[in-house]
Computed example of a mutant assay.
Amino acid sequence: MGKHNATVFLYIDEEPDPIAELQTPIVFNLDTTKLTDGEHTLKIISKFGNKEGLKIIHFNVRNGPIIHLEGLSDQETVNGVLPLMLNAYDTGKNQSFIIKGSENPRTIPVWVWIIALVFAAWGAFYLVTNFSL
């Protein structure tokens, strides 16, 4: 390589050995399928002559299926029997068009029911007042 290129060492989390030693400039494909789901750290150390640089990047990996839970929130105080709706599905990242969460059945929010009821009540009022015999 040329004398104007730096050498970079890539480390994942607290591993003592680098996952790659590369000459810059380069495009490197980080394979996250070899990492567990959760928080990770990418540490990049660059060396150019007797100088050294450091960059640390925190990132989350989620290769596993998405888990959706309805009926219980994080840090919620509960009692009695809880009906939980639980679903796990893959994101289908290989497709070009994805409606995120479309595979996941969800209950209709309360505000939608309220709007529907108000509209139905208004419609009934309108019919009764304008078309009564």
Rank of each mutant, 00 (worst) to 15 (best):
T41Q: 13
H40T: 03
L42G: 04
G71S: 06
N63E: 02
F59Q: 08
E70F: 10
R62G: 09
G71V: 05
G49H: 03
N50R: 13
G53R: 01
D74G: 00
N50W: 12
S73A: 10
I67C: 13
H68I: 00
H68F: 13
K55N: 12
H40W: 02
F59C: 04
K55L: 07
S73H: 10
I56G: 07
I45L: 06
F48T: 05
E70Q: 14
I45W: 01
L54I: 07
G53I: 01
H58A: 07
E52R: 08
N60G: 08
G64A: 15
I44A: 04
R62Y: 09
K51N: 14
V61I: 09
I44N: 03
H40E: 01
K55A: 10
T41P: 00
H40Y: 00
S46D: 06
G71W: 09
K55W: 02
K43Q: 09
K43Y: 00
I66A: 11
I67L: 15
I44T: 08
H68G: 07
S73V: 04
V61L: 03
L42C: 03
N63G: 01
H68R: 14
E70W: 10
N50C: 00
N50D: 13
I57Q: 10
I67Y: 15
I56T: 15
H58Q: 12
S73G: 11
G71E: 02
D74I: 00
G64H: 13
N50A: 07
D74W: 12
I45N: 07
L69C: 13
K43H: 08
I44Y: 05
S73M: 10
I66G: 06
G64M: 09
S46P: 03
F48K: 04
F48W: 05
E52W: 03
I44E: 04
G71L: 05
V61S: 04
T41A: 07
S73F: 08
K51C: 00
L69G: 11
I56E: 12
D74F: 13
N60W: 07
F59P: 04
L54G: 06
E52D: 05
K51E: 14
